[in-house]
Nucleic acid binder design. Structure first.
Length: 202
DNA sequence: CGCTCGATATTCT
DNA sequence: GAATATCGAGCGA
């Protein structure tokens, strides 16, 4: 079994976000043949509960964010700006009621030709450098919301990888609240990070 | 390269 | 009605 165990996700969300950098996100598609699409996670962000003004869970449960409150290690897929899907993994310590880690960047490893077709682009760099891009490259939609990411047989799961030499911690991107929290983690040696650093507003 | 804007689901005010 | 965990097209420099 190559998958990260459920205990990996039953820890503080920020710690899980850091430790997910270097792990492998795997998507299997059964369509006649079985296709495998996979990439190494190079960029993540942690989102919390009522303590986090930028989190979907900050106001409590809604139909959309239920997975953030449920069992850990599950895929939380949501539709952003009416245009793109984004994928998270639910993760939190037992003391907290909600939490998830947004996967923001991948380094493509397997199934690159199919990713190019799904994205309708040829450029490797723009294939998976961003949360909306990587869901398109791996054909991740709300149909996969709630998927158990700790099971090898799941169409979407997370496997062990190689621990990066260095992980950088920065403020999160694309939010206007709680910009002071440094809950974004990147592998600075990777070319597949959407932005190397966050420029802090004055 | 950088900036503006449209697409438009879901939630909040 | 406004904001949002985004992206890419179009435009100007």
């Amino acid at each position: 079994m190559n998958c990260l165990p459920i205990s990996f996700y039953r820890r503080p969300t920020v710690v899980v976000a850091r430790d997910l950098v270097g792990k492998k996100l795997v998507r299997t598609i059964k369509k006649g043949h079985t296709f495998k699409l996979a990439g190494t996670i190079v960029e993540t962000e942690a989102y919390g509960y009522t303590d986090d003004e930028a989190s979907h869970a900050r106001m409590g449960r809604t139909a959309r964010n239920l997975v953030m409150f449920g069992e850990v290690g599950r895929a939380y897929v949501y539709f952003a700006y009416g245009n793109h899907f984004c994928v998270n993994v639910s993760a939190r310590s037992d003391r907290v009621q909600a939490g998830a880690v947004l996967i923001r960047g991948l380094e493509p490893v397997e199934g690159i030709e199919m990713m190019k077709k799904l994205r309708r682009v040829d450029d490797i760099i723009s294939l998976t450098t961003g949360p909306g891009k990587l869901t398109q490259a791996l054909s991740i939609t709300s149909a996969l919301n709630g998927t158990d990411m700790t099971k090898q047989e799941s169409e979407l799961h997370i496997e062990f990888g190689i621990k990066p030499a260095c992980i950088l911690r920065t403020p999160r991107i694309g939010i206007s609240r709680a910009i002071e929290s440094q809950w974004r983690f990147i592998d600075p040696s990777s070319k597949f990070v959407s932005r190397k650093i966050q420029i802090n507003a004055l």
